[in-house]
């Protein structure tokens, strides 16, 4: 059986997979990292978003073998070892940006990439537009947008100060 070697949340792994194994299946079924969800399985909902070498991708639409040598970050890898949440997670909690929570891991991972891609800061409209790859059926998005706006101020304090 083929093997793939990758680093997930800072830990190196070598895992036996099939050619057809999806990255999300590797994460959930081989590494038991079930925080990454499978919603639609058709690359629309974004519940499966993880970071590959710092960029957000839909792990249901990437083969595990394609992650050879990659640095993968999942929702489990965001908080510090002592349990301190990532600012995005903290702001999701602060602003009640979730209800059922199913979309939340993907939302948080996409949101972090979105903020990273816009060091100059984003308007509310840009945040809403930037979430086009993630679906939420509970919140109406409003509190998610508020949480991301608050988090970008924590993640890029200088950009906000310059405004």
């Amino acid at each position: 059986m083929p093997q793939v070697s990758l680093t997930v949340n800072g830990t190196p792994h070598t895992v036996e997979v099939e050619g057809r194994t999806l990255l999300v299946e590797l994460l959930r079924e081989k590494l038991s990292l079930t925080g990454t969800h499978v919603g639609c399985d058709t690359s629309q909902c974004g519940a499966c978003v993880v970071h590959i070498d710092g960029y957000s991708v839909k792990s249901c639409t990437m083969l595990a073998m394609q992650a050879e040598g990659a640095m993968v970050t999942t929702i489990e890898g965001l908080a510090a070892a002592d349990g301190t949440l990532h600012p995005m997670q903290e702001m999701f909690r602060e602003h009640h940006a979730l209800q059922c929570g199913f979309c939340t891991p993907g939302m948080v991972m996409s949101a972090i990439d979105l903020v990273n891609m816009h060091p100059q800061g984003m308007t509310e409209d840009e945040i809403r537009h930037g979430l086009e790859g993630n679906l939420c059926r509970c919140t109406g998005y409003h509190n998610i947008v508020k949480a991301i706006d608050a988090a970008q101020k924590l993640m890029h304090p200088m950009a906000q100060a310059a405004e």
Binding site: S43, G46, V57, K58, S110, D113, M117, G130, G133, N134
Partner: peptide, 9 residues
């Protein structure tokens, strides 16, 4: 095209 995640791949 697509969304951010699709555009990354």
């Amino acid at each position: 095209i697509g969304d951010t995640q699709v555009r990354h791949r």
